[in-house]
């Protein structure tokens, strides 16, 4: 308790310091959509909630027992007019909100690629999407850029105004991939691939997190999302590829190196496990993501790119089977 009070003098200062309310100050069209829906619903619902709260207080005060002046209808318990009103108003409001519900659930569907409309809005109608494969591990995030042949751990670097096309899986427990300021989150589940489409409309350094409890390392299972203009991003990619960046590790990310990172850090009983440091890989073995999905499915992967991928995954399987026999064995 004593330690707690020490913080108190700092309280007003902290409240005044310009803090970011991530969900109300989004940095991309999806996040803006999430926010707009939230604010819209709040506003519409307030139209009923506020009058109800006021009426509760007014009625409670006006019809208090000591107020003999107020009218008292001791047997009154029904009124068709009021019934129509109390059913009608909520139904109308919910019908309106249902319309928005239908529209926004489809328009902002996480599985739907970023629309042309959104791209035009940020002023880059022709930007090609950037593919990122996301694997959640104990307790870190692995990001593979399949088109660029590089990968990172616990840091997601993306160009602004470019649709981000995420394929997500887990090589451990289930969790949720979430960058609050960019918008919607989606679960990562082992043996399955989920999808998410986001876009950053301005540069920034955003918090990214695991939004579903994953075990003792959960609180540190976070990553920074760094959005930068395309040129800067290209330069960063070059820097990683050439190994010029000090965060680049020596090994290429292949099945063997992957195993090293797959192992969870020790989790002592009396402390949190050490957070995983940011790491860059200058090259990545192709098909690693499919391989991770496949190893929980007796080598099969649900494929949406074409038949050849399936065969590739089958080839990979023999490798992964050797690496982690206990995971695939029945």
């Amino acid at each position: 308790m004593k330690r707690l009070w020490r913080f108190f003098p700092a309280l007003p200062a902290l409240m005044l310091s310009g803090c970011t309310v991530d969900l109300l100050q989004p940095a991309g069209p999806i996040g803006e959509g999430n926010r707009d829906m939230m604010v819209l619903e709040w506003a519409v619902m307030m139209c009923v909630v506020l009058p109800v709260i006021i009426a509760t207080l007014v009625f409670a005060w006006k019809y208090r027992a000591s107020n003999a002046k107020a009218e008292y209808l001791r047997n009154w318990s029904h009124s068709n007019k009021i019934e129509v009103f109390i059913w009608g108003v909520p139904i109308l409001i919910i019908l309106v909100l249902s319309g928005f519900n239908y529209w926004s659930t489809h328009y902002y569907d996480p599985y739907k690629p970023i629309s042309k409309e959104m791209q035009v809005k940020v002023g880059a109608p022709n930007a090609k999407p950037l593919h990122v494969e996301v694997i959640s591990l104990d307790w870190k995030w692995l990001f593979i850029y399949p088109d660029l042949g590089i990968a990172t751990i616990n840091e997601l670097d993306v160009p602004t105004k470019t649709p981000l096309d995420f394929r997500i899986t887990s090589d451990s427990v289930m969790t949720s991939f979430f960058i609050p300021q960019l918008g919607s989150q989606i679960y990562s589940m082992a043996g399955m691939e989920t999808q998410l489409h986001l876009m950053a409309s301005r540069p920034g350094n955003f918090q990214g997190e695991a939004a579903q409890y994953t075990g003792p390392g959960f609180s540190d299972m976070r990553f920074r999302t760094i959005a930068m203009p395309q040129e800067q991003f290209d330069a960063w990619v070059q820097n990683v590829r050439s190994g010029g960046n000090p965060l680049v590790v020596k090994e290429a990310l292949d099945a063997q190196t992957y195993q090293k990172y797959h192992v969870p850090p020790a989790a002592p009983h009396d402390a949190a496990p050490k957070p995983a440091p940011v790491v860059y890989f200058s090259s990545v073995q192709a098909g690693l993501f499919e391989n991770v999905v496949a190893k929980y499915n007796v080598g099969m992967t649900h494929d949406h790119h074409g038949k050849d991928m399936d065969e590739k995954a089958m080839d990979m399987h023999s490798e992964s089977h050797a690496a982690a026999p206990s995971n695939t064995g029945m």
């Binding site: 519900n101 989150q185 939004a211």
Partner: peptide, 24 residues
């Protein structure tokens, strides 16, 4: 009073497009 507010935030979470950021 309290439940009205709770009901309001419940309806907010019932919209998937909003829930995607406030889930969990």
């Amino acid at each position: 009073i309290t439940f009205s507010i709770g009901g309001m935030t419940g309806v907010m979470m019932a919209m998937p497009a909003a829930d995607w950021v406030i889930h969990n």
